[in-house]
Protein backbone atom coordinates (compact mmCIF):
# COMPACT_ATOMS: atom_id res chain seq x y z
CA UNK A 1 0.00 0.00 0.00
CA UNK A 2 1.22 3.43 -0.83
CA UNK A 3 -0.81 5.45 1.65
CA UNK A 4 0.63 6.21 5.06
CA UNK A 5 -0.52 4.03 7.95
CA UNK A 6 -3.01 5.69 10.31
CA UNK A 7 -1.85 3.70 13.28
CA UNK A 8 1.16 1.51 13.50
CA UNK A 9 2.87 -0.27 16.30
CA UNK A 10 6.39 -1.54 16.33
CA UNK A 11 7.64 -4.35 18.59
CA UNK A 12 5.08 -3.67 21.25
CA UNK A 13 5.50 -5.50 24.58
CA UNK A 14 3.50 -5.64 27.75
CA UNK A 15 4.88 -7.53 30.73
CA UNK A 16 3.32 -7.92 34.15
CA UNK A 17 5.41 -8.50 37.26
CA UNK A 18 7.79 -6.67 39.54
CA UNK A 19 9.38 -3.65 37.85
CA UNK A 20 8.88 -4.99 34.31
CA UNK A 21 10.68 -2.05 32.64
CA UNK A 22 13.93 -2.92 34.36
CA UNK A 23 13.58 -6.60 33.53
CA UNK A 24 12.72 -5.72 29.96
CA UNK A 25 15.72 -3.42 29.52
CA UNK A 26 18.06 -5.92 31.15
CA UNK A 27 17.15 -8.48 28.50
CA UNK A 28 17.95 -6.17 25.62
CA UNK A 29 14.28 -5.35 24.95
CA UNK A 30 13.76 -8.89 23.65
CA UNK A 31 13.28 -11.35 26.52
CA UNK A 32 12.77 -14.95 25.45
CA UNK A 33 9.88 -17.05 26.64
CA UNK A 34 12.23 -18.88 29.01
CA UNK A 35 13.50 -15.59 30.49
CA UNK A 36 9.97 -14.45 31.15
CA UNK A 37 8.92 -17.70 32.79
CA UNK A 38 12.01 -17.95 34.99
CA UNK A 39 11.69 -14.28 36.03
CA UNK A 40 8.12 -14.91 37.18
CA UNK A 41 6.67 -12.45 34.68
CA UNK A 42 3.53 -12.71 32.63
CA UNK A 43 3.69 -11.58 29.04
CA UNK A 44 0.36 -10.21 27.83
CA UNK A 45 1.62 -8.67 24.59
CA UNK A 46 4.71 -10.08 22.91
CA UNK A 47 6.60 -8.26 20.19
CA UNK A 48 3.56 -7.11 18.24
CA UNK A 49 4.03 -5.03 15.09
CA UNK A 50 1.36 -4.09 12.59
CA UNK A 51 -0.05 -1.19 10.60
CA UNK A 52 -3.63 -0.05 10.16
CA UNK A 53 -4.36 1.99 7.02
CA UNK A 54 -7.02 4.68 6.68
CA UNK A 55 -10.52 3.33 6.18
CA UNK A 56 -9.47 -0.23 6.94
CA UNK A 57 -11.02 -2.68 9.40
CA UNK A 58 -8.36 -4.70 11.16
CA UNK A 59 -9.77 -7.46 13.33
CA UNK A 60 -7.62 -8.83 16.12
CA UNK A 61 -8.81 -12.35 16.80
CA UNK A 62 -7.78 -14.59 19.66
CA UNK A 63 -9.16 -16.74 22.42
CA UNK A 64 -9.54 -15.41 25.95
CA UNK A 65 -6.19 -14.80 27.59
CA UNK A 66 -4.43 -14.32 24.26
CA UNK A 67 -3.75 -10.67 25.09
CA UNK A 68 -6.01 -9.04 22.53
CA UNK A 69 -7.79 -6.85 25.07
CA UNK A 70 -4.47 -5.78 26.54
CA UNK A 71 -3.22 -5.00 23.04
CA UNK A 72 -6.09 -2.66 22.23
CA UNK A 73 -5.68 -0.98 25.62
CA UNK A 74 -2.00 -0.47 24.87
CA UNK A 75 -2.90 1.11 21.53
CA UNK A 76 -5.22 3.57 23.27
CA UNK A 77 -2.75 3.91 26.15
CA UNK A 78 -5.28 2.85 28.73
CA UNK A 79 -2.45 0.51 29.67
CA UNK A 80 1.15 1.64 29.38
CA UNK A 81 3.13 -0.76 27.18
CA UNK A 82 6.42 -2.02 28.62
CA UNK A 83 8.31 -1.49 25.39
CA UNK A 84 7.94 -0.67 21.71
CA UNK A 85 6.52 2.17 19.72
CA UNK A 86 3.09 3.29 18.65
CA UNK A 87 2.66 5.96 16.05
CA UNK A 88 -0.70 7.53 15.37
CA UNK A 89 -1.02 9.87 12.40
CA UNK A 90 2.76 10.15 12.41
CA UNK A 91 2.90 11.18 16.07
CA UNK A 92 4.72 9.05 18.63
CA UNK A 93 1.85 8.18 20.92
CA UNK A 94 4.00 6.89 23.77
CA UNK A 95 5.75 10.23 24.07
CA UNK A 96 2.54 12.22 24.29
CA UNK A 97 2.15 13.91 27.68
CA UNK A 98 -0.83 13.27 29.87
CA UNK A 99 -2.42 16.47 28.66
CA UNK A 100 -1.77 15.67 25.02
CA UNK A 101 -3.26 12.22 25.51
CA UNK A 102 -6.43 13.73 26.96
CA UNK A 103 -6.58 16.00 23.93
CA UNK A 104 -6.08 13.11 21.49
CA UNK A 105 -8.81 11.08 23.20
CA UNK A 106 -11.15 14.04 23.18
CA UNK A 107 -10.85 14.57 19.45
CA UNK A 108 -9.35 11.60 17.68
CA UNK A 109 -10.14 8.33 19.44
CA UNK A 110 -13.31 6.44 20.14
CA UNK A 111 -13.73 3.14 21.94
CA UNK A 112 -16.57 0.65 22.39
CA UNK A 113 -16.54 -1.80 25.30
CA UNK A 114 -17.66 -5.39 25.72
CA UNK A 115 -20.05 -4.69 28.58
CA UNK A 116 -21.09 -1.31 27.16
CA UNK A 117 -19.64 0.67 30.11
CA UNK A 118 -22.50 3.15 30.10
CA UNK A 119 -22.89 5.54 33.00
CA UNK A 120 -26.02 4.26 34.77
CA UNK A 121 -27.12 7.62 36.14
CA UNK A 122 -27.23 9.34 32.75
CA UNK A 123 -29.88 9.18 30.07
CA UNK A 124 -29.08 7.95 26.57
CA UNK A 125 -28.50 11.44 25.29
CA UNK A 126 -26.32 12.42 28.24
CA UNK A 127 -24.27 9.25 27.83
CA UNK A 128 -23.73 9.98 24.16
CA UNK A 129 -22.94 13.63 24.86
CA UNK A 130 -20.59 12.75 27.71
CA UNK A 131 -17.32 12.99 25.70
CA UNK A 132 -18.47 16.38 24.43
CA UNK A 133 -19.49 17.49 27.90
CA UNK A 134 -16.05 16.83 29.37
CA UNK A 135 -14.60 19.01 26.61
CA UNK A 136 -16.74 21.84 27.92
CA UNK A 137 -19.04 22.11 24.91
CA UNK A 138 -22.30 23.79 25.86
CA UNK A 139 -25.44 21.83 26.41
CA UNK A 140 -27.42 22.88 23.36
CA UNK A 141 -24.55 22.17 20.99
CA UNK A 142 -23.62 18.80 22.44
CA UNK A 143 -27.22 17.64 22.54
CA UNK A 144 -27.66 18.60 18.92
CA UNK A 145 -24.64 16.54 17.93
CA UNK A 146 -25.71 13.65 20.21
CA UNK A 147 -29.16 13.62 18.63
CA UNK A 148 -27.61 13.28 15.17
CA UNK A 149 -25.61 10.23 16.20
CA UNK A 150 -28.48 8.67 18.11
CA UNK A 151 -30.46 8.88 14.90
CA UNK A 152 -27.55 7.37 13.00
CA UNK A 153 -27.46 4.30 15.27
CA UNK A 154 -31.25 3.98 15.12
CA UNK A 155 -32.22 4.95 18.65
CA UNK A 156 -34.28 8.04 17.90
CA UNK A 157 -37.07 8.51 20.39
CA UNK A 158 -35.14 6.89 23.22
CA UNK A 159 -32.97 9.87 24.13
CA UNK A 160 -34.53 10.19 27.58
CA UNK A 161 -34.23 6.51 28.52
CA UNK A 162 -31.81 5.31 31.16
CA UNK A 163 -29.44 2.48 30.25
CA UNK A 164 -31.25 0.04 32.56
CA UNK A 165 -34.40 0.52 30.48
CA UNK A 166 -32.71 -0.67 27.26
CA UNK A 167 -31.94 -4.15 25.93
CA UNK A 168 -28.33 -5.27 25.53
CA UNK A 169 -28.30 -4.51 21.82
CA UNK A 170 -29.74 -1.07 22.39
CA UNK A 171 -27.23 -0.37 25.15
CA UNK A 172 -24.40 -1.22 22.81
CA UNK A 173 -25.88 1.12 20.22
CA UNK A 174 -25.56 3.81 22.87
CA UNK A 175 -21.97 2.73 23.47
CA UNK A 176 -21.29 2.98 19.75
CA UNK A 177 -22.96 6.37 19.53
CA UNK A 178 -20.93 7.66 22.46
CA UNK A 179 -17.68 6.52 20.87
CA UNK A 180 -18.63 8.25 17.63
CA UNK A 181 -19.70 11.51 19.25
CA UNK A 182 -16.31 13.15 18.83
CA UNK A 183 -15.95 11.98 15.20
CA UNK A 184 -12.84 9.94 15.99
CA UNK A 185 -10.11 9.27 13.45
CA UNK A 186 -9.49 5.85 14.90
CA UNK A 187 -12.16 3.63 16.31
CA UNK A 188 -11.38 0.85 18.79
CA UNK A 189 -13.99 -1.82 19.40
CA UNK A 190 -13.22 -4.28 22.19
CA UNK A 191 -15.42 -7.35 21.66
CA UNK A 192 -18.42 -5.07 21.21
CA UNK A 193 -20.91 -7.81 20.38
CA UNK A 194 -19.64 -10.67 22.55
CA UNK A 195 -22.08 -10.03 25.36
CA UNK A 196 -25.10 -10.15 23.03
CA UNK A 197 -27.38 -13.01 21.92
CA UNK A 198 -26.39 -14.66 18.61
CA UNK A 199 -29.34 -13.19 16.71
CA UNK A 200 -28.79 -9.68 18.03
CA UNK A 201 -25.08 -10.09 17.41
CA UNK A 202 -25.71 -10.68 13.73
CA UNK A 203 -28.02 -7.72 13.53
CA UNK A 204 -25.42 -5.53 15.20
CA UNK A 205 -22.74 -6.74 12.79
CA UNK A 206 -24.91 -5.66 9.87
CA UNK A 207 -25.51 -2.37 11.62
CA UNK A 208 -21.77 -1.98 12.12
CA UNK A 209 -21.08 -2.62 8.42
CA UNK A 210 -23.76 -0.12 7.47
CA UNK A 211 -22.23 2.52 9.71
CA UNK A 212 -18.78 1.83 8.34
CA UNK A 213 -20.00 2.16 4.75
CA UNK A 214 -21.20 5.65 5.71
CA UNK A 215 -18.35 6.75 7.94
CA UNK A 216 -15.25 4.99 6.53
CA UNK A 217 -13.45 4.98 9.86
CA UNK A 218 -10.11 3.39 10.57
CA UNK A 219 -10.94 0.52 12.86
CA UNK A 220 -9.27 -1.90 15.24
CA UNK A 221 -11.85 -4.51 16.15
CA UNK A 222 -11.26 -7.14 18.83
CA UNK A 223 -13.15 -10.42 18.84
CA UNK A 224 -12.88 -14.06 19.84
CA UNK A 225 -15.42 -15.10 17.22
CA UNK A 226 -13.83 -16.16 13.93
CA UNK A 227 -17.11 -15.94 12.01
CA UNK A 228 -17.45 -12.35 13.13
CA UNK A 229 -13.89 -11.67 12.07
CA UNK A 230 -14.54 -13.06 8.58
CA UNK A 231 -17.69 -11.06 8.16
CA UNK A 232 -16.18 -7.76 9.16
CA UNK A 233 -12.47 -7.79 8.53
CA UNK A 234 -10.38 -6.39 5.75
CA UNK A 235 -7.42 -7.99 7.45
CA UNK A 236 -7.26 -10.32 10.44
CA UNK A 237 -4.51 -10.58 13.04
CA UNK A 238 -4.54 -13.87 14.92
CA UNK A 239 -3.16 -13.63 18.44
CA UNK A 240 -1.81 -16.50 20.46
CA UNK A 241 -0.13 -16.14 23.85
CA UNK A 242 0.41 -12.43 23.36
CA UNK A 243 1.96 -12.59 19.92
CA UNK A 244 0.43 -12.10 16.49
CA UNK A 245 0.98 -15.40 14.72
CA UNK A 246 -0.41 -14.32 11.38
CA UNK A 247 -1.73 -11.09 9.91
CA UNK A 248 -3.43 -10.83 6.54
CA UNK A 249 -6.68 -11.06 4.59
CA UNK A 250 -9.01 -13.96 5.40
CA UNK A 251 -8.12 -15.86 2.26
CA UNK A 252 -4.48 -15.89 3.08
CA UNK A 253 -5.15 -17.17 6.58
CA UNK A 254 -7.28 -20.01 5.29
CA UNK A 255 -5.26 -20.96 2.24
CA UNK A 256 -1.76 -20.45 3.69
CA UNK A 257 -1.97 -20.81 7.45
CA UNK A 258 1.34 -19.82 9.00
CA UNK A 259 1.17 -22.22 11.94
CA UNK A 260 -0.79 -25.26 13.05
CA UNK A 261 -2.65 -23.03 15.45
CA UNK A 262 -3.99 -20.91 12.60
CA UNK A 263 -4.69 -24.06 10.58
CA UNK A 264 -6.78 -25.50 13.45
CA UNK A 265 -8.70 -22.27 13.60
CA UNK A 266 -9.41 -21.92 9.94
CA UNK A 267 -9.98 -25.59 9.10
CA UNK A 268 -13.71 -25.44 9.66
CA UNK A 269 -14.27 -22.17 7.84
CA UNK A 270 -16.60 -22.62 4.84
CA UNK A 271 -14.51 -21.40 1.94
CA UNK A 272 -17.45 -20.06 -0.04
CA UNK A 273 -17.81 -17.40 2.63
CA UNK A 274 -14.62 -15.58 1.73
CA UNK A 275 -13.38 -16.92 -1.64
CA UNK A 276 -14.23 -14.73 -4.58
CA UNK A 277 -15.07 -16.00 -8.00
CA UNK A 278 -11.84 -14.49 -9.32
CA UNK A 279 -9.75 -16.79 -7.08
CA UNK A 280 -11.18 -20.08 -8.37
CA UNK A 281 -12.37 -19.39 -11.95
CA UNK A 282 -11.01 -21.11 -14.99
CA UNK A 283 -9.66 -19.42 -18.12
CA UNK A 284 -11.89 -17.60 -20.56
CA UNK A 285 -13.64 -20.09 -22.80
CA UNK A 286 -15.27 -19.55 -26.17
CA UNK A 287 -18.61 -21.26 -25.46
CA UNK A 288 -19.27 -19.01 -22.49
CA UNK A 289 -22.97 -19.20 -21.58
CA UNK A 290 -25.61 -16.56 -20.94
CA UNK A 291 -25.05 -16.51 -17.16
CA UNK A 292 -22.72 -13.68 -16.16
CA UNK A 293 -21.27 -13.33 -12.70
CA UNK A 294 -18.94 -10.73 -11.18
CA UNK A 295 -15.28 -11.39 -10.58
CA UNK A 296 -15.44 -10.08 -7.01
CA UNK A 297 -18.61 -11.96 -5.99
CA UNK A 298 -18.30 -14.47 -3.17
CA UNK A 299 -18.66 -18.10 -4.23
CA UNK A 300 -21.31 -18.59 -1.57
CA UNK A 301 -23.46 -15.84 -3.12
CA UNK A 302 -23.40 -17.22 -6.69
CA UNK A 303 -23.20 -20.99 -5.97
CA UNK A 304 -26.93 -21.66 -6.35
CA UNK A 305 -27.08 -19.80 -9.66
CA UNK A 306 -24.10 -21.64 -11.11
CA UNK A 307 -25.34 -25.07 -10.03
CA UNK A 308 -28.80 -24.46 -11.51
CA UNK A 309 -27.26 -23.29 -14.75
CA UNK A 310 -26.69 -25.94 -17.43
CA UNK A 311 -23.60 -24.46 -19.10
CA UNK A 312 -20.43 -22.64 -18.13
CA UNK A 313 -20.91 -19.32 -16.35
CA UNK A 314 -19.10 -16.33 -17.72
CA UNK A 315 -17.05 -14.27 -15.24
CA UNK A 316 -16.78 -10.54 -15.94
CA UNK A 317 -14.96 -7.70 -14.20
CA UNK A 318 -16.63 -4.44 -13.18
CA UNK A 319 -16.38 -3.11 -16.72
CA UNK A 320 -18.26 -6.10 -18.15
CA UNK A 321 -15.11 -7.52 -19.72
CA UNK A 322 -14.98 -11.36 -19.72
CA UNK A 323 -12.07 -12.44 -17.54
CA UNK A 324 -12.76 -16.15 -16.92
CA UNK A 325 -15.30 -18.93 -16.56
CA UNK A 326 -16.87 -20.87 -13.72
CA UNK A 327 -18.25 -24.42 -13.91
CA UNK A 328 -20.33 -26.48 -11.51
CA UNK A 329 -17.14 -28.42 -10.85
CA UNK A 330 -15.38 -25.30 -9.55
CA UNK A 331 -18.21 -24.56 -7.20
CA UNK A 332 -18.58 -28.15 -6.01
CA UNK A 333 -14.88 -28.29 -5.14
CA UNK A 334 -15.30 -25.33 -2.84
CA UNK A 335 -18.61 -26.38 -1.32
CA UNK A 336 -17.66 -30.01 -0.74
CA UNK A 337 -13.90 -30.04 -0.18
CA UNK A 338 -13.90 -33.46 1.55
CA UNK A 339 -15.48 -35.35 -1.34
CA UNK A 340 -13.36 -33.89 -4.10
Amino acid sequence: MTTEAKLSCEQLWKLYGADPEKFFASHGDRPTQADIASGGYICAVRDVSFDVYPGEIVVVMGLSGSGKSTLVRCLSRLIEPTGGEISFEGQNLLEASRKEMIDIRRHKMGMVFQHFALLPHRTVIDNVAFPLEVQGINRAKRHERAREIIELVGLSGRERYYPRELSGGQQQRVGIARSLAVEPDIWFLDEPFSALDPLIRREMQDEFLRLQSLLKKTIVFITHDFDEAIRLADRIAIMYEGAIVQFGPVEELVLNPATDYVRDFTKEIPKEKFLTVGRVMGPVVADCGTLSIGESDLIGDVAAKVIDYEGVACVRDEHGQAVGSLTRGHVAKILFPEES
Partner: peptide, 18 residues
Protein backbone atom coordinates in the same frame (compact mmCIF):
# COMPACT_ATOMS: atom_id res chain seq x y z
CA UNK B 1 -16.51 0.80 39.76
CA UNK B 2 -15.97 -1.54 36.83
CA UNK B 3 -12.70 -1.11 35.00
CA UNK B 4 -14.58 -0.80 31.71
CA UNK B 5 -16.52 2.21 32.94
CA UNK B 6 -13.24 3.77 34.08
CA UNK B 7 -11.70 3.03 30.67
CA UNK B 8 -14.73 4.59 29.02
CA UNK B 9 -14.22 7.71 31.10
CA UNK B 10 -10.55 7.93 30.15
CA UNK B 11 -11.34 7.34 26.48
CA UNK B 12 -13.90 10.14 26.58
CA UNK B 13 -10.99 12.39 27.51
CA UNK B 14 -11.76 13.05 31.16
CA UNK B 15 -9.19 14.85 33.26
CA UNK B 16 -8.49 13.18 36.63
CA UNK B 17 -10.87 15.62 38.29
CA UNK B 18 -13.62 14.84 35.78
Amino acid sequence: VSSEVLDAGVMAGCTPRQ
